[in-house]
Nucleic acid binder design. Structure first.
Lengths: 230, 230
DNA sequence: AGGCGCTTGTGAAGACGTGCACAAATCGCG
DNA sequence: CGCGATTTGTGCACGTCTTCACAAGCGCCT
């Protein structure tokens, strides 16, 4: 379940604050979800809470980390050391949560050789050789969109079966390869949509049932051009 | 609907390639979704295509941009100019998709005054003054987790009602304020989970075993390629 | 030992999202 | 002018996710 990482983060935070046990209510609020949902999620993984007491924080952390496969520190290959890739390479949130950036790649020869956070940027053509040395589990694509598909193909070719894609495009990969996409601009656009919706609602207090009533009269009307033919 | 930005991106890509109309099938594959889903989404916003022909690319772009509130270029305030914030400040994907980074803030006096991409970093205490000048629509938090809640409070205090949070923590905000969260490490953990699941399945083809390794049906894998959040 | 308060785990109902399949509508062509 | 090819818009059914509400279980206090 996609919420487990969020629970894990909340649990680590609780553990740092000295909590040894936590109720579903407490953990749920720390993770920002409903308590019933949390209990159901935890029960799905054969969980270990004690009725009347709650969950053992340490034990639950172990459990979730095992299910997420974080007991082994996975090696990540990052392709594209531009603006975003540079930041990702230096992001300590990866190392602190069970991942190791094992190699950096870029197609621009001007960037090859640069050292970031103790790692030297290599040319993307060296990917097969490096992948043979390190056991790359996850590939991160932080290239411009036009290059992303080719990079994805190269990653798949060297055996990577999980890809995190920051390029604004859809990747086509063979079955069995997981792709997750993060598009920063899309997040902003979703917020913009909500802004627009809120603004429209305050302007037009009458709120209909349909979710997307953000279409103020004008456009909706101009659209329905005389459909009555025959 | 959270998929509209993805459709918009696909449409822009099609427009650049000279397409004037596009069928739901074509647009759906370009956006990586089911065609029926796409048609239902588009019908929701009252937008219309022509039966037998498809959708007019230009018109549809206008429609979606209007619904998303992108007809006005929204001003974004970015708080936290560390590793990630630095990259976000220089990310051209924002400007190219209707957003304008209007101001940069940081609490570290050592960073105040630094110039990034033509913008000077100001101290976060100046937020009220700057917000009075610029009309800030969206706040982006790229600070360490411990500082995030305070920054969120400050943003809300100056009237920001949409926040994009990159800090790994849950923010509590008053009703009416929208928060979207992006946690890069969580994305990796989800991929790690799939890796682990795939490894367990190939290693243990028998369906028996503990609930932890088996993770039967209950943990259905959500469709891989989709924007986070949703 | 027994009762009481607290918390987990779960059954059931409802909301929601998804995808199929088909009618309605439009265009092009003979 | 009519017909067939094509594509949208949508009713319907299905599966998933969410939430409520409550029984079962555990510890503590008397």
């Amino acid at each position: 379940m996609a919420r487990l990482p969020e629970y894990l983060r909340a649990l680590h935070s609780l553990a740092e604050n000295g909590h040894e046990t936590v109720s579903s209510e407490g953990l749920a609020s720390a993770a920002g979800v409903n308590s019933a949902k949390l209990r159901k999620d935890l029960s799905q993984l054969g969980s270990y809470g004690t009725r009347g007491v709650g969950y053992d924080v340490g034990l639950l952390i172990e459990q979730i980390e095992y299910v997420l496969g974080l007991t082994q520190r996975r090696a990540v290959a990052l392709v594209g050391v531009g603006n975003l890739g540079h930041a990702l390479a230096g992001y300590d949130g990866f190392a602190s949560r069970g991942f190791r950036i094992a190699a950096l790649f870029d197609a621009d020869s001007g960037r090859v050789g640069e050292e970031i956070n103790g790692l030297v940027v290599r040319h993307v053509d060296e990917l097969p050789r490096v992948a043979a040395e390190e056991s790359i589990a996850i590939g991160v694509i932080a290239t411009p969109a036009p290059a992303a598909q080719q990079v994805a193909d190269q990653l798949v070719a060297v055996g990577v079966t999980s890809i995190l894609n920051f390029a604004p495009c859809v990747l086509s990969v063979p079955a069995g390869v997981d792709v997750r996409k993060v598009d920063l601009a899309i997040e902003l656009q979703i917020l913009s949509f909500h802004e627009h919706r809120k603004a429209s609602l305050t302007a037009l207090p009458t709120t209909g049932g349909s979710a997307l009533t953000a279409l103020p009269g004008g456009l909706a009307v101009t659209e329905s051009q005389e459909a009555i033919g025959t």
